[in-house]
Design a protein around this nucleic acid. Structure first.
Lengths: 222, 222
DNA sequence: CTTACTAAGTGTTAAGTGTACACTATAGGC
DNA sequence: GCCTATAGTGTACACTTAACACTTAGTAAG
């Protein structure tokens, strides 16, 4: 026990709620806990902060170690610190939410976590700790942000069609959108450009392919 | 040094940016540091988390201890954790922002802080640690929230006139508002009721007095 | 008591934005 | 060449937002 303090110190973790879209459903990335407490239960990827490491770096590192996911859009969500939230010791969790585009879905389980897997958001397994609360909050933040920012682009692969983009918005908002109004609106943002290519996707007219003009950015709109 | 851990643990603090309106200006509550580091500099009220204390409770307790302010609207803002942000040891700060109505401006310095004082937001003194960043973020959050919530009511005393309320919105948004449009809009929210009283405030027609229907609540509007 | 002064209070109109809605175009498969 | 499926396009109406000026009710001074 080499680290001593005059007053008791909590431990700090980061936990990350990673969303993606797959098979027309919102998906969440979970890892199965290999150790007590809650051994065998599913949980958000995350882990303890190293003492000289920035919070954001910790979130990205843990995500990569446990699931292989890297280079995702990520932002701080909220800090959970109820005294009883972890049975081991006092642990404060700085939580994040992240978005994975459809072409970065491939994950691999890391050394810390036995397994990593995508779950449809509507049918999540039982979750460890207070992770269900974290996920709930992350979903609300994501839904709210689709209304006033270009955050949904972060769920898209590098190129996509307007129909594919509309489908993403429909899933996130949970309602059907008018095709003409959607196209007028999304193009009026001046955030998309045509690649010139077309996508043949069945026995029907092919769709123009678009890409985001600034793929890394999330702009506030309206 | 009675508290030992196998791995190093950061310390946790809460820091609170309290805003108010006074003399037609946005004001921020600061305390002068009585101890090193940054002794003598002004800083946000705040302090260390106790080991069995909730984060929100810690913020409220520190605020009361250092400034006497209590029963304010308060919400979590962001968690700052850059490894070098405090020269003593690794300290993670869970920050809050709070709003004080004009009739709760009276403060008193507590035991931990030598002095507590309101400063006009435009002329803040030099600040300790990364508190300038925290304040900047808090101001942005406050400005954004006036656009889509009833948060501005938290800056009002129990009763007020529509002109006073309009003045608050004008200060927060930094622009003049049309009187008729403002009144139409604010009354259409159905969040205000007349008390029946009138306020004589000079040599002119007295104003009707209003109060918030649910003073504690902040509702999302639009 | 009359007048001057000051902030409170009140409606209408034009411009702009959002919403509803149906048909044509272009490819593949048979 | 005919069928089928998704891509792609424009207009009319309703509603919301923004601009704008005068009357009212009190105080104070002469």
């Amino acid at each position: 026990m080499p680290y001593s303090y005059e007053y008791p110190h909590p431990a700090i973790t980061t936990d990350i709620a990673v969303f993606s879209l797959h098979q027309q459903q919102l998906q969440l990335l979970l890892v199965r806990r290999g150790q007590s407490p809650h051994k065998g239960k599913w949980a958000l990827p995350g882990g303890f902060l190293e003492i000289d490491e920035d919070l954001d770096s910790c979130a990205k590192r843990e995500l990569k170690e446990e699931t292989g996911a890297a280079d995702l859009y990520i932002e701080q969500l909220f800090t959970f610190g109820h005294p009883e939230r972890d049975p081991r010791e006092r642990i404060i969790s700085v939580t994040y939410f992240a978005l994975a585009p459809a072409d970065k879905l491939t994950i691999r389980a890391g050394s810390d976590a036995a397994e990593a897997e995508w779950f449809p958001f509507d049918t999540l397994p039982e979750l460890a700790f207070d992770h269900a609360d974290i996920i709930q909050l992350a979903k609300e933040r994501l839904a709210a942000k689709t209304l006033y920012s270009t955050i949904a682009f972060q769920l898209m692969p590098e190129t996509f069609t307007l129909s594919e983009l509309q489908s993403v918005y429909e899933i996130l908002r949970g309602e059907a959108l008018d095709k003409r109004n959607f196209r007028k609106w999304i193009l009026s943002l001046n955030q998309l450009e045509e690649t010139g290519g077309k996508r043949r996707n069945g026995n029907h007219r092919p769709a123009k392919i678009y890409r985001a003009i600034s793929p890394g950015r999330v702009d506030i709109i309206r």
